[in-house]
Design a binder for these strands. Structure first.
Lengths: 344, 344
DNA sequence: CTGTTAGCGCTTTCAA
DNA sequence: TTGAAAGCGCTAACAG
């Protein structure tokens, strides 16, 4: 204990180990240039006193801030727009005034440009947060950044197999399973046909949702069948058109799982066809909220963009300064929103 | 802007207003003893520079910490135990080493002792977080604390009408509505009878859940009827007994909404009677998790105790130091947990 | 390799 | 009513 009864400080550690503050700091922060014997002495003192670095004080003392680059698809999608906004806010709040954010909005969100953006950001930033794309070149760019000591956090959509520092987002396979449970129980037709609408099969997160959906439907509601999968390119107009075609081709389903964006296009196509199957969609935005309120949708499967942004920033900050994260706090929930628990 | 391009500091404000750092601090923190003219000058500078207090630095500089008292029912209930644990953790992390927590566990959680505990805590602590009870005497104790300048945050269960600084917890009426939607859609029997199990009708949160449940069932599933309400005193053994009696008296329902604790007692009573109606219960704990995993339960309506504890502590800290809170971050969600989105 | 010293942005004595 | 100065716990030069 430090003499005054409070938590032990680095000064206490230094005194106990008979070294200067600077040396204690070197050891605690694993900086080079300390004799092994000294390291041992300091580490012993740390252990004996139960010293824990005061992250706030450390952030304050550090003169030089960090540059973080955020790479996101075009902000037309309301969910992505919200994410961008929250990232800015989170840098201000969680970053202790030491994080400068640069936002890179990508026109076409494709592997090659994304990989380029990551490579570029790795030169200009100390940390990167990027919405991922499951692609080898993107993975390679991330690996290269990591090798340079630039941590990259993947957001919402992961790049599995890469050296990304961490993935912040939901388990999309599990989200698909939740959708299947909801469809199965809400539709109340043990033999119904269900339509799935995706942004694109090339998006890892959408594919994962589809897989989880198929698996859970097969296990728990084996009488129900997926009659078809439409791709709406995460865009309102395209989705409306894709759903119209799907209805023509496969007839009216008893339920629809919309795993991508462009949900209001889906709702409009249903209105056009004058049918109202059970509908489960994703994300709570200015686009989907009124649909749920008006009972044109049964449930929304949601991830909180504010939480995701804060989490990504906290994790990056921790990686950059070598502090610990509270995993429990960083777990992104798969939320189920009904009309009844719609937040105000 | 401060000359170096970073965010403006109090020093910048002081320079601009032609006063010392100390005076600028006095104005910004609304301390007494500054001439009105000076106040105006400083406030103008604050506005012009867009100054915002750096909370971390302020916490660091403050020598004297705060004492916070937490008042909770007996920790036998696993949800409450978790809450207590998380409160300790949150004080360490969010409290910037400046929050000393004292936990008061109450044997019988009744209005009179609770009011006494609040009155007592108001003498010994700078801030209070307490699980509330909707009672006039408790309200009066809270009002008295507030009058002394000791903010009290109500946790999980509110004391409406009192001067509590803030309520941290879910909207229980809405939670009851969610339960009704789930029961209505999962039971798939437009004419079924449903049993409600409560801890006690005297608990405000349970009563709110019941009200929300009744209202939503009436609106959306008007064929279904509540056949009875049992009280299990939030205890496993009592709940088992109460449910057994309820089944005897009212017969087997098609669904059960368990709004209180003691859920495994309910599950056991159902096993005893060899029936398996749709069951919706509350809170994810070591007690309820296995029930959901084993399909002895259909869904759990959950509030995250870790989030609630961190939120309560952040809000108390903000009140104590006069800083702002991010409302969005402090909103406690009504989570719906199915077997498929059960966190690891 | 190690220590000394000057801060980070703010609060808090103590004097004036 | 106001200001000067010390310091919270840590980092980052700069010497030695």
């Amino acid at each position: 204990m430090s003499e005054d009864g409070g938590a032990p400080t680095l000064r206490d550690v230094a005194r106990r180990a008979n070294v200067s503050l600077a040396t204690a700091d070197r050891v605690v922060n694993r900086r080079a240039g300390v004799r092994p014997v000294t390291i041992d002495r300091v580490e012993a003192a740390v252990r004996e006193l139960g010293f824990e670095r005061h992250a706030g004080a450390a952030a304050l003392a550090r003169r030089t801030g960090f540059r973080v680059a955020a790479i996101l698809p075009r902000l037309a999608n309301p969910f992505v727009a919200r994410l961008a906004e929250e990232l800015g806010e989170a840098c201000r709040i969680e970053g202790q005034r030491r994080l400068a954010l640069t936002l890179h909005e990508m026109e076409g969100f494709a592997p090659e440009p994304l990989a380029r953006a990551v490579r570029h950001a790795a030169e200009a930033a100390d940390g990167i947060v990027a919405m991922g794309l499951d692609d080898a070149e993107v993975g390679a760019a991330i690996d290269a950044a990591a090798l340079r000591g630039v941590p990259v956090v993947t957001l919402v959509s992961d790049v599995p197999g890469s050296a990304r520092h961490r993935y912040v987002g939901i388990d999309n396979r599990a989200a698909g399973r939740v959708a299947a449970s909801l469809v199965g129980r809400f539709a109340a037709r043990p033999d119904g046909r269900v339509l799935v609408v995706l942004g694109s099969r090339n998006l890892r997160d959408h594919r994962d949702r589809l897989e989880g959906f198929e698996a859970a439907l097969g296990e728990s509601f084996s009488g129900m069948r997926i009659c078809g999968v439409a791709e709406g390119r995460d865009d309102v107009a395209s989705t409306r058109e894709a759903v119209r075609e799907a209805l023509d081709r496969w007839g009216a389903p008893c339920a629809i799982y919309s795993a991508g964006a462009g949900t209001s296009g889906l709702a409009d196509a249903l209105a056009d066809a004058a049918i109202r199957p059970v509908v489960i969609a994703h994300e709570l935005t200015a686009e989907t909220r009124p649909l749920l309120e008006a009972d044109r949708l049964d449930a929304l499967i949601v991830q909180d963009p504010g939480h995701e942004a804060r989490s990504a920033v906290r994790i990056l900050m921790a990686a950059l300064t070598g502090t610990a994260v509270n995993d429990d706090q960083e777990r992104i929930r798969i939320e189920i929103i009904l009309k009844d628990n719609l937040p105000k």
